[in-house]
Design a protein around this nucleic acid. Structure first.
Lengths: 370, 370
DNA sequence: CTGAAAGCGCTTACAG
DNA sequence: CTGAAAGCGCTTACAG
């Protein structure tokens, strides 16, 4: 690892100018075949690896899309040996995967930077200046800093609480999803004593889901608590804790609605460990539609949001704005589906309640899921 | 989004030189408080966002760790509506997560670039030149290109087949894991007609696991096929296809060992759909130790590899080599555990067979898992 | 504590 | 088709 070769070294060895080296490497058709070959040989011999920084600086673009990912989970302790991964948001994971994938399809690399909280200035100094556009994945965002950054590069907010004028955003129809699910729980199963296990308190996803929970049950004529039974951090450990508390705080509700799948997973596990049968003794539902929920025991009834698509759309908005900086900002709301599996009390044959169609006021459609 | 402000603009507005702007922003203590304030005000007023490229170019470092992720899955068709995510390797996902996390802990951002196959030159041009060090996640690697790149920046190979001299690598004890699992299947369950569902043919993980499968059963005195029943791409669809073929090709084996968990998941699902009971009619095992396997029906007996740790160690090796470029290369082999759940025929209480201890020739230790 | 100046390694009009 | 030169936006010895 001696001093790395540069265009100058390659040029010298090939007996051409640095401009020609640049062209031979970048625009092969712009130079004579003979020249091209000489440059290629020199580059190979010198183990030349072009500097991305220098190139990007000269070109005034980076080809990178940034993902700023704020972990908002608490430092929760999980009692399960294998559950370390459950500390992580499987939901964000999927969204990030959607971003990576779409970035790749559109010729960008993804620069992922995560942090535990938005330390002031970090966003600006660490990534904003090194990417062409930036996706913010967070429930709570550093509004002021973003306002400045969005003046310089396209920014898209995913699942964020606040919106910033001129900044695109992507979110899902939380309320509709919960509403459809509650209707199912009432109409099909006749439940009437629900409980809600919340997520990160300042998360708009968590807030919207709980409010929809309240509204839906209330409108159906049932009294429900005006706060979540417990608010957690969207991890399985929240579910574990919630289940424990549920078991020691009087009669069980007939259905436990969780702010997300991972929380529901924790509830399921802890209930099972205590011999509480789901759905016989109590029904449990989630939100997200993680693959994981198809394999739980019993399989989890949930609301599925299009996670990969959320990421893909975020990238699409970014790239579009890169092409048309002045386009008005767009707030995308993606539809969700209710995935009926067994944890709500339904038989093994899963059903799918399409959110799309309902929102268009058509008949509830139920189609076989597998 | 007018022309973005630069140090020159900030300097002009603050009435100082660009050197002072740089210092005020980067080394606050090196300038007078008054100067610092003037610069900060100017920067804020101008919505100044420093250029990462220019900074990195001047500094000769990027603060970024690259992850080059080669997808090697085939374009398989899955019959399950929700299974799109199963097309993705949940294993790589975890490793990447481990990388992101450790990168962050060590003050680096992670640049993730993925591709479907190693197009020549892409690696060199697209990432190698823009990161301080590079992790290659792939079963099969572009050896020549990497040899060149590793001359310039630290490279670490994860789960790769070939090793390159002078390049660090991380892999797991595939053989030991399979061996321990086979011993369990024979000693505890008395199975004798196993079948192996393979992974990507050129993957060393897939190859090592199959070879260990052969060796272990053979050494125990049982005849086993000398090729996998089927070789796939490590996705659930491979498992689905394998299960179909198994069902139509004569008597069922007594145990189906899969090259990884996602494949096993596909087998489980398809068997279940056809009314084949696991483990009563046939046992099934996986490899990876994904969380997902704890929730399948029945829960999956598998070999668990420390995926987050694999990623973390990859980063550690990279950062260490950054500090000591001449250190001899190290090939890390991480231990695995056998996670006994129910799909092998064991009762609900899960067991853990530690790979570590066995490899040190101590007694097989069995500890409760939850 | 601050400034002038060189340098980081490319790309890209502009000439020829 | 090729070269000389300016420019991309910072950082960092070196003086003062």
């Amino acid at each position: 690892m001696s001093r790395a070769a540069t265009v100058y070294d390659v040029a010298a060895r090939a007996g051409v100018s640095i401009a020609t080296v640049s062209r031979a490497l970048r625009l092969p058709d712009a130079v004579r075949p003979e020249t091209r070959r000489r440059v290629a040989d020199a580059a190979r011999a010198l183990h030349y690896v072009p500097s991305g920084n220098a190139r990007d600086l000269a070109r005034q673009r980076t080809g990178m899309l940034g993902v700023w990912f704020i972990e908002d989970r608490a430092e929760a302790v999980v009692d399960d040996d294998a559950a370390e991964s459950l500390q992580w948001s499987l939901y964000w994971d999927q969204v990030i995967r959607g971003i990576e994938r779409e970035s790749w399809r559109r010729g960008f690399a993804a620069l992922i930077a995560s942090t535990r909280s938005a330390r002031a200035g970090e966003l600006t100094n660490e990534i904003a200046g090194r990417v062409d556009a930036l996706a913010i994945l967070a429930h709570d965002i550093p509004t002021d800093e973003l306002a400045v950054i969005s003046e310089r590069i396209p920014v898209v907010l995913v699942a964020a609480r606040h919106s910033i004028s001129g900044v695109d955003s992507v979110r899902v129809a939380n309320s509709q999803g919960i509403k459809l699910l509650v209707e199912h729980l009432i109409d099909v199963h006749g439940y009437r004593r629900p409980v809600f296990i919340g997520g990160v308190p300042h998360s708009s996803d968590a807030v919207e889901r709980f409010q929809a929970f309240r509204r839906s049950w209330t409108e159906a004529g049932y009294a429900v608590p005006d706060t979540p039974f417990l608010s957690g951090d969207f991890t399985a450990s929240t579910g574990v804790v919630a289940a424990e508390q549920l078991l020691t705080s009087g009669p069980l509700p007939d259905v436990v609605m969780c702010a997300n799948d991972q929380t529901a997973l924790g509830v399921l596990r802890r209930f099972r460990r205590h011999g509480v049968r789901v759905p016989e003794d109590v029904a449990v539902t989630g939100f997200d539609g993680l693959e994981l929920g198809a394999g739980t025991n019993p399989p989890l009834t949930t609301v599925r949001q299009p996670m990969l698509q959320i990421g893909a759309i975020a990238v699409k908005l970014l790239v579009e704005r890169l092409a048309a900086p002045e386009r008005p900002s767009v707030a995308t709301m993606l539809p969700v589906d209710v995935v009926i599996r067994e944890s709500c009390g339904c038989p093994a044959q899963p059903l799918l309640i399409k959110g799309m169609e309902l929102s268009a006021r058509s008949t509830t459609s139920r189609s076989t899921n597998r």
